[in-house]
C-alpha cells in the first residue's frame, strides 16, 4: 500500500446513458480508476445541487455529474435543465473558493465505454492534483 493520496470521487450517472456507458466499460474490460463511487440516478436532471454540496460535506474530494448528450435525453430535456443548473453551480462554488477542478460534468452515451474511462481518468488526475478536500467537510469540524 502506498501512502499516496487517492481521491474519492462521487459520480452521479444517469440511468439511460452514462450508467450504461459505465456498464459497457465494465463488460468490455476497460480499466478505469477505482476512485469513482457511482450513484445511479434516473436522469442528470434529477441531480440536485444539494447532492453535490452534501457529497463535498461528507468527504468526497471531487464530484462528477454525467448524462446523455444534449438532444439524447431519455426524458427529452432533462439534461438541458441540468446543464444550466451546473454551469451556474460550478461558478458559484468557484466563487466561494472551491477549486473549479473539483466539480465536473460530462456527456457519456451508452455506447461510450471508452469515453467513460477517459472522463473518469481525467477527473481523477485533476482532483488528485489539487489534493484532498479540506474546506467544509463535516467530520473535521467541532465534532
Amino acid at each position: 500500500m502506498s501512502d499516496e493520496f487517492e481521491p474519492t470521487i462521487i459520480a452521479f450517472l444517469c440511468n439511460w446513458c452514462s450508467y450504461a456507458g459505465a456498464d459497457l466499460a465494465g463488460t468490455s474490460r476497460i480499466h478505469y480508476p477505482p476512485n469513482v463511487k457511482i450513484i445511479r440516478v434516473m436522469c442528470s436532471g434529477r441531480v440536485n445541487p444539494l447532492f453535490l454540496m452534501n457529497a463535498l460535506q461528507q468527504g468526497a474530494d471531487g464530484v462528477l455529474i454525467s448524462g446523455c448528450h444534449p438532444g439524447d435525453c431519455h426524458y427529452l430535456e432533462g439534461n438541458y435543465y441540468s446543464r444550466r443548473r451546473f454551469v451556474l453551480m460550478h461558478r458559484l462554488l468557484e466563487h466561494i473558493g472551491v477549486h473549479p477542478n473539483r466539480v465536473h460534468m460530462s456527456w457519456v452515451s451508452a455506447s461510450e465505454g471508452e469515453k467513460f474511462k477517459e472522463v473518469v481518468s481525467e477527473v481523477r488526475d485533476k482532483v488528485k492534483e489539487i489534493g484532498p478536500m479540506n474546506q467544509f467537510g463535516r467530520r473535521q469540524i467541532n465534532w
Binding site: 444534449p70 430535456e77 444550466r84 454551469v87 460550478h90 460534468m105 460530462s106 456527456w107 472522463v119
Partner: peptide, 12 residues
C-alpha cells in the same frame, strides 16, 4: 426553461 444552444463551458 432552456435553450439547446446554452453554453457548455466546462462540460467534458
Amino acid at each position: 426553461s432552456y435553450n439547446p444552444q446554452d453554453p457548455e463551458e466546462y462540460i467534458m
